[in-house]
Each structure stands twice: as structure tokens, then as C-alpha cells.
């Protein structure tokens, strides 16, 4: 199996004024293709920081990181953006939608940044919308939708480009049990059907249990 993620962190330091916080000291992570990995740990331990690094959003860290066989350090800012567009999908909480755009436009947003317009984009859009059952809310603005509908819209945006890796940050937080089950099912169906690698940061123990591997981050005493 190919390594999708190969991370060897010395540490990640945040500075504010004279004080600094160091996280993820001597942390290593390897994830292979098609694997489902859950990252758990108490608040403030660096879960979201880790996801930012894995998702090519944060490059200021000490250590090495290879994503899909390529060193993240060798990627330019533009290349990182292109990778986020084509190879990575982010599943976030329901609030991560642009409130002034319709649900359809929110879902189509990655298509806007595609380097070349691809054949079948509109078919892919219809397919994603159908599979998530959100055809009736496409013209609505996020504020007019329920929490579950917004979560599905965020999910649709994450998968519309058929990403090789999906990073999910607390995907079930603030969802009722029905919508929670729905999102979990969609996430694993993506892994099963498209072979996408899934890395999920969560506090939800039952969600974590459904992954192939659970990595627990702990604060260094």
C-alpha cells in the first residue's frame, strides 16, 4: 500500500508576544491509501493544528511532511492551493459555508478553482447532490437551511472534486442523531466507493471507533 501521509514533526510552535506554545513534539504519522484514521484527544492538544498541517494550510512547523509521495515543502503556495482543490477534501462543521452564496454555489466553489474545466463537472454535481438528497435546497442561502442540510452541503463541497484524501474536522459536532448517522454513513461510503483516505479529528468516541485506526494525542507533561 502506498503511503498517502508521511509526517515526522519535530514540533509546531505558536508565538504570541513573548509567550509561546509548543505542540505535537516528536509526532509521527503514516497513513496508507484507503485507510480511515481517527485522531482524538483533549481540547488544545493540537488536533486541529495537525489537520491544518496535513491539509497544506500551515507550513510553519519543524519537521518533514510528504503527502501523496511529494514533500509538502517543495510545493509552492499556488501548488498547495491546487492540491487542496484537486486532491484534498475538507469536511468541516455546518458553519463553514459562505452565507451570501446559495447552497448550489457553495457546492460548486471548488469547480471555480479547478485549473482546467473538466468534462462531466455538471454531471458530477448532479450526482453528488442526488446522493446527498439536497436537490431541494440548492437555491437557498445557508441561513435558510437546517443544520443537517448545511452539513450535507459542506460534505458535498468536500467530495465534488473526487478527492484522494478527506480531512474531517469534528464533522458530527452540533448535529442531531439522525443527521450524525447520515454524515458518518456518507463519509465511510466515500471511502468504500472511491477509495478515498479519511483522516477524522473528533471528540465523538463512537465515530472514532468506526475507523481503522485511532490515534490519541496527549499533552506532554
Amino acid at each position: 500500500m502506498d503511503k498517502v501521509i508521511d509526517l515526522n514533526l519535530d514540533h509546531k510552535t505558536y508565538r504570541k508576544g513573548s509567550s509561546s506554545v509548543t505542540l505535537l513534539e516528536h509526532f509521527s504519522l503514516t497513513v496508507t491509501e484507503g485507510e480511515k484514521v481517527a485522531i482524538v484527544g483533549e481540547s488544545g492538544v493540537g488536533k486541529s493544528t495537525l489537520l491544518n498541517i496535513l491539509g497544506l494550510l500551515d507550513t510553519r512547523y519543524e519537521g518533514s511532511y510528504r503527502l501523496l509521495g511529494r514533500s509538502a515543502r517543495t510545493l509552492s503556495d499556488l501548488e498547495s492551493a491546487a492540491w487542496r482543490n484537486e486532491k484534498i477534501g475538507f469536511v468541516l462543521q455546518e458553519s463553514a459555508l459562505i452565507s451570501s452564496l446559495s447552497i448550489a454555489d457553495n457546492i460548486r466553489l471548488p469547480l471555480l478553482y479547478a485549473r482546467t474545466p473538466r468534462k462531466g463537472d455538471s454531471r458530477r454535481f448532479d450526482q453528488v447532490v442526488d446522493s446527498l438528497g439536497i436537490g431541494s435546497i440548492l437555491s437557498k442561502k445557508p441561513l435558510e437551511c437546517s443544520g443537517g442540510e448545511k452539513s450535507r452541503a459542506v460534505f458535498a463541497r468536500a467530495i465534488i472534486m473526487n478527492p484522494e484524501v478527506v480531512f474531517a474536522d469534528e464533522p458530527t459536532a452540533s448535529l442531531d442523531s439522525e443527521n450524525r448517522s447520515r454524515i458518518i454513513a456518507l463519509l465511510f461510503a466515500l471511502n468504500r466507493d472511491s477509495g478515498s483516505t479519511i483522516v477524522t479529528v473528533t471528540h465523538d468516541a463512537s465515530l472514532a471507533d468506526q475507523h481503522d485506526r485511532i490515534i490519541k494525542l496527549q499533552r506532554k507533561d
Binding site: 494550510l57 499556488l78 475538507f90 468541516l92 458553519s95 463553514a96 459555508l97 466553489l109 478553482y113
Partner: peptide, 16 residues
């Protein structure tokens, strides 16, 4: 702010 975050997540850059 949120829009910028969403755009960066789907392939844009803050600089652009």
C-alpha cells in the same frame, strides 16, 4: 472571514 476560509480550503490562496 468565513468566505476566505472556505475559498482557501477549496483551492484558493490568501495572497491571491
Amino acid at each position: 472571514g468565513t468566505e476566505v476560509r472556505c475559498r482557501v480550503l477549496v483551492g484558493d490562496t490568501l495572497r491571491q
